[in-house]
Design a binder for these strands. Structure first.
Lengths: 342, 342
DNA sequence: TATGGTCCTGCAAACGATTGCACCGCGTCG
DNA sequence: CGACGCGGTGCAATCGTTTGCAGGACCATA
């Protein structure tokens, strides 16, 4: 009844030694065994419906064909498409992914890494926000490759796939500037995250390139990428600079928070203030108003990260390790020329 | 450098036999070993930072402390909260979950189940739509418990956690009826899915209970729970019964599709037609208009399913196996009295 | 003092695969 | 004709745990 067909059963049927079966079935040792014998083994395996037991294999080889994937929270709509990309690509290569939610909590993160190491994961993909230094150290200590997603270390010491944040923000600013806006604010992300930081730098640069001045009261920083923080920071921004006609948010969730604050203050979007987000999360096209935002190729991020990992796992000849994906602008209803209603 | 500390190392330090270490460390065999010895072993393990190797353990015990979780698509916003619930609860109990996307494709499903069996998962949790019969058979053949989520088999042959669909739809219909609507349509879900079917039955029942007649042209069936199908079926419905003033959709995505069709035809919601959804997916409160919908306790579904699984895994004394969770109505902007604008 | 019973703990065989090593037969070359 | 090389296969150890079984130490009872 059980899937009890082992390598020994196959050996018996094929009338060879279990060791030979192993060699015949393993792609890179097949050369060692006589063609004819190999075929006989293959047939026997097929016939019996033999499936090698990855557990037993892993015990001997120290490989689990499993990749640990760390994300802050699967409930954040940004991640499912990325995960989907990772899983699909990894799956094609015979790998499985083990997903954990860290909630950006160092303790949870540590526990999960520990558990994953115990489970002999072959590598880590991390889309998590904190502690990458330590994670990197952990991974290095365990001799496991680590791929960063959606963020990177300044010194490029770990392979990473990110989107070109500066370019994305530039698209947003240009669009707003082209509409005729002069006084443009930035609801920035946390500066200790590479995404938040780079988008902030990108904003400043794009503004000056557009010939616009960026006054210090036109920028406010959030502590996290959440809707609540977006609302709080937007309020702060409007208090400091009530004459703004447009806001570039560092992230869709922050933009959502801006919507909240505008509504609370009786301001209309886009008539009174235009808003641009970042990420193009699912369903932001259905908001009121539909959010103009910078679209990042989320699924592609996942597949590319998986590719990077697979590459690290097979040939250790390291190809490109810092991959930059290009975002695009999606113009929808939350942006309009300034004073559009007047 | 490696996590190379094995049970033998601990044994050496504690000056006992590896077998004794195993017994001392395993909760339900600890009684077999002298208190004092056990403590010594524990200290040694602690000191060395010993982590038992689950792979090796699994090889001997045939348990992987891993649960296979099948969902159609992680990209569907309905699932992340459920997954989160499952993972958190399972994690507390020392289990890990292996998530796969089936896309409701029988082949993909089969392949994944096969792979998971090979990986010796201890059980399956399925939120997938198709093939449960076969999945059940597979699981039974492998001697692995199976828990169904969000749907069930008519004969209750597998433990399942579902929401009370009939009750939920009743809430929706009652709300609409209370607003004064008489001509109420139903964009139904697929009838081969238990959710779709039960919501349809609930609709009919609730209507008659409200003293309203349900004419056959007031109900149309969709093939899948998708936005596109919602749009298609809604159009069909409006063609057949142009005088409807309210629509109960079997699902939020279908409701979204209804929005599309209304907009396309220049009908306003809720002024011309009220719409109610089902599930309260994330962000449907931010749509235009905010969607009135039936809220299901998504995260709780996950935790309860995990509980059910854990229960099956430990004591096989089977407690309640069909668990019904109660939904609530969330009234928002997509419903209003008929002819509200006139 | 012999016997029996209770606790412990060591021993060794699994679990299912991989892999270094040895061996065998045979062809080839000197 | 002997030695060598080589392709192919079997042997057995190994990965890190768990667990049935045996046996030793100790105590109590007859």
């Amino acid at each position: 009844m059980r899937s009890a067909v082992t390598i020994r059963d196959v050996a018996r049927v094929a009338k060879v030694h279990p060791g030979t079966v192993s060699r015949a079935l393993n792609a890179d040792t097949r050369a060692l065994v006589n063609e004819e014998t190999a075929e006989r083994v293959l047939r026997a395996a097929e016939e019996l419906g033999y499936r090698p037991n990855p557990i037993a294999r892993g015990l001997k080889t120290n490989r689990s064909y499993t990749i640990g994937v760390l994300i802050p929270d699967i409930t954040n709509p940004l991640f499912p498409p990325i995960l989907r990309g990772i899983e699909d690509r990894l799956g094609e290569a015979g790998y499985t992914s083990l997903i954990v939610n860290t909630d950006n909590d160092p303790d949870r993160e540590r526990i999960h890494i520990e558990a994953m190491r115990a489970r002999q994961v072959d590598g880590f993909i991390s889309a998590t926000a904190r502690l990458d230094r330590e994670l990197l150290a952990e991974a290095a200590a365990a001799g496991k490759p680590l791929v960063l997603v959606n963020r990177s270390l300044e010194d490029g010491s770990a392979p990473a796939v990110t989107v070109d944040d500066a370019f994305g923000i530039r698209l947003a600013v240009q669009h707003i500037a082209d509409l005729g806006h002069k006084r443009i604010g930035h609801v920035s992300g946390p500066q200790n995250l590479s995404t938040g930081h780079r988008r902030y730098l990108g904003f400043v640069e794009a503004m000056t390139d557009a010939g616009l001045e960026v006054q210090s009261e036109h920028v406010r920083f959030s502590k996290w990428f959440t809707e609540d923080e977006g609302a709080r920071v937007c309020a702060e921004l409007l208090d400091a600079a009530p004459d703004l006609t447009a806001i570039v948010a560092a992230n869709d969730l922050l933009a959502l928070g801006c919507y909240d604050t505008l509504e609370e203050r009786g301001l209309r979007c886009p008539e009174d203030i235009s808003i641009v987000g970042f990420n193009d999360m699912p369903f932001v096209d259905r908001l009121r108003p539909p959010l103009t935002t910078v679209r990042v190729p989320q699924r592609e991020i996942g597949t590319v990260a998986a590719d990077l990992m697979l590459q690290r796992l097979t040939d250790d000849g390291d190809g490109a390790s810092q991959i930059l994906l290009e975002p695009t602008l999606v113009v929808r209803g939350s942006t309009a020329p300034p004073g559009a209603s007047r």
